[in-house]
Amino acid sequence: MTVSYENSKTIFEGIKAAGIRSVSALPETWLGLLLGRIEEDPDMTLVQVAKEEEAIGIAAGAYFAGTPHVLLMQNHGFFGAVNGLVSLAMLYHIPLCMLIAYRGHWGEPYPWHTRGGIVTEGVLRALGIPFEHARDPMKVAKQIREAWTFSQSSLSPVALLLTRDLMED
């Protein structure tokens, strides 16, 4: 299994088409090709963090500044960012558009990802964060655009789960 070159490109184009010009991220295998494109694009600002919770603060700063921003992280990084999500984003009604690599689910060969994958949707539900699965490269650009729009109208964090179907060839 390798990370999908074509679908990484499609996601990148979807992010740009949604008007996003700023991205915070912690590099992750599935996100590597996508982050490479973002880094090379002169129209995009990429902030690479040491831990995902920082990205919640950075995204809040970008929101206050009026710059459309998405967060890229793995689901395990999302777990590490929960207090920032709750006591910054939700508490202050700050919208966040998160694209989350959904590791550790159907087809996962690596044991170390499995616990995180199993609890991801439950944690999202417990936090009241609306989410959808991105599986189809034909639909992902629209899903990114809609996730972005919904985050802004609801002033809430929203999550698009990037699945194995989409991220691997």
Binding site: I58, A60, G61, A62, F64, L88
Partner: peptide, 8 residues
């Protein structure tokens, strides 16, 4: 981190 996002 908020400051960094604002400043950048």
């Amino acid at each position: 981190s908020i400051g960094l996002g604002l400043a950048m």
